[in-house]
Write a protein that binds this DNA or RNA. Structure first.
Lengths: 177, 177
DNA sequence: CCGAGCATGTAACACGTTACATGATTGC
DNA sequence: GCAATCATGTAACGTGTTACATGCTCGG
């Protein structure tokens, strides 16, 4: 029971920052929440239509241009806060890499080491990408206290990436010996 | 293109350890892969039926008892290895906790600290649970070299849990100051 | 005999991606 | 004018969970 409504949460959240088009919502989610969230157009547009019909957002036609701009209504903002408050249903964390390594005996040491090496590379790249974002946010924090919340999500990604690197190193050593 | 077929991989993997009933496959996945995988009956039974029709597994009627036992055929084992070798499509890692914290400004410091405290508790509990499993596996490793692969997945969970604890502590300090 | 757990399966629903179709706007 | 990008939407498909329906088996 009780749908997840996570897409609704992400869309309302994006619009809470500033009014924008559906296309821009997608871009904002990809760019800003990209390291822990994703949405496709096939989800976003139907969601926008439903939110509009429930008067949680309104659509302003952009004068002469083709697109439109969606804006949160007061009840939409209330709805967003309600969703934020809702208990977080811990999704089962399906991890394809671990599933493969668990049955690694069927693949052999070398292939498993390759999987680990690749996972390590991805983590190193992500750590570097998040480092750049982090420096920007730390500068912002002085002016905007709310930037701290965004910083918290970046820290999560960095801790997670560092853990992945340490795990890969330890596992590579274990499989080498 | 190219379906994920992750359920198929998990089911074949479970049966590669030993022949068992569908009910037992579900139990094995829940107990052994539980910290990084999950499957429901609604997925398992149709998958077993399909695998049987493709002759990747066979069903042995258990004499007089009601259930049946599924067993990998040689081609089923080949199929499993093929699936293990397939490139891992890194699933977008949707994290509901981070999505909420990102918009934490709308919730306020106290509610965000509560979310972090709860995330920390879950990580502490998981770390302890995995520690018990780890000790068992380390003992097994001497006798069964393949136990190392299972140990690798446990290490992943522990690194991840420790990272979550460190992240929660750092973030709680950040939001306190 | 009765309840707990074993066992199998289906139907309805929710969620999400991909591919497609269509057209406007803008910069070169 | 033409390509890239902005913009909106739909349809088909795949995947996954939940709830339901059904019956067996075994220990107390």
């Amino acid at each position: 029971m009780s749908r997840q409504q996570t897409t609704e949460l992400a869309v309302l959240g994006a619009l809470s920052v500033q009014p924008m088009s559906g296309y821009a919502v997608r871009a904002a989610i990809t760019e800003t929440l990209g390291h822990f969230w994703s949405e496709s157009f096939g989800q976003i547009y139907p969601t926008l239509a439903r939110l509009e019909s429930e008067a949680l957002i309104v659509r302003d036609a952009d004068g002469k241009t083709s697109g439109s701009t969606f804006r949160l209504t007061p009840s939409g903002r209330e709805r967003l806060v309600d969703l934020l408050r809702e208990p977080i249903t811990a999704a089962p964390p399906r991890n394809g890499t671990l599933l493969r390594l668990f049955f690694g005996g069927l693949l052999g040491v070398e292939e498993c080491r390759a999987i680990l090496t690749e996972a390590r590379s991805r983590a190193v790249a992500q750590l570097a990408a998040l480092d750049a974002i982090r420096h920007g946010l730390e500068a912002e924090t002085a002016a905007d206290p709310d930037a701290r919340y965004r910083l918290v999500t970046v820290l999560a990604g960095q801790h997670s990436a560092r853990a992945a690197i340490a795990w890969a190193d330890e596992s590579l050593a274990l499989l080498a010996g």
